[in-house]
């Protein structure tokens, strides 16, 4: 579907200031762009302009930024939210006592019909899945964070099930500007 509405969404997608969208070739000005529907799924646009390009290239630099440890466990039936919250409290308290660094601690309660599905969407909350995720410095410490959730099976509120754990390496991205003069661009064409 190509309409004024879909084109407007696409025009503004991730561009921030429409009058100053920095590209490698120019600083584009989309603020006066207008769309006209000329026939079904066919749009004409006008009003795009631009200014001279900046003297820098945006460069995305990836860097190692530690690890994320994540654990999940579900509780179902009556009182499931209270049990999940108690489980969360236990893990939060235990993570406060560890000696390794922890940041970005996130505790989520998720769920509709993943535990006991009787073919109907329940009117009331009948299950909840606790998800705990945090960043730390090493893979081993991330594993320990994930283990804190799994251990709720036997050291937590009644009826926890379906525990999972995960460790992810974090490669973060920093955006920097590099002077264009620092690059020599060569293009090599190959006939195949």
């Amino acid at each position: 579907m190509v309409t004024r509405a879909t084109c407007t969404e696409q025009l503004l997608y991730e561009i921030h200031d429409p009058a100053n969208y920095i590209t490698p070739d120019c600083t584009a000005d989309f603020s006066k762009v207008d769309f006209k529907e000329i026939e079904k799924d066919k749009i004409a646009f006008s009003g795009a302009s631009g200014k001279t390009a900046t003297t820098t290239y945006k460069t995305s630099v990836g860097y190692l930024n530690g690890f994320i440890g994540e654990g999940q466990i579900s509780y179902g039936g009556s009182n499931c939210i209270a049990r999940a919250l108690l489980a969360q409290e236990i893990v939060e308290k235990r993570l406060k006592k560890v000696t390794y660094p922890i940041s970005g601690l996130r505790c989520d309660l998720i769920g509709i019909n993943s535990l006991f599905d009787d073919g109907k969407i329940p009117n009331e909350i009948n299950e909840v899945r606790l998800r705990i995720s945090a960043k730390t410095d090493t893979k081993e410490h991330a594993q320990l964070i994930a283990n804190e959730v799994e251990t709720l099976y036997t050291n937590g509120p009644y009826g926890g099930g379906g525990a999972t754990k995960k460790v992810d390496e974090i490669i973060s991205i920093a955006s920097i500007l590099i002077p264009k003069d620092d690059f020599t661009i060569t293009i090599l064409y190959k006939n195949t």
Binding site: R4, L12, I68, G104, S172
Partner: peptide, 20 residues
């Protein structure tokens, strides 16, 4: 275009590559 474009800073817990 009948449009408003909002830019929200420090809004994604560190961003796609870092968020928990």
């Amino acid at each position: 275009l009948g449009a408003l474009n909002f830019v929200m800073y420090d809004a994604l817990g560190g961003g796609v590559t870092s968020s928990t």
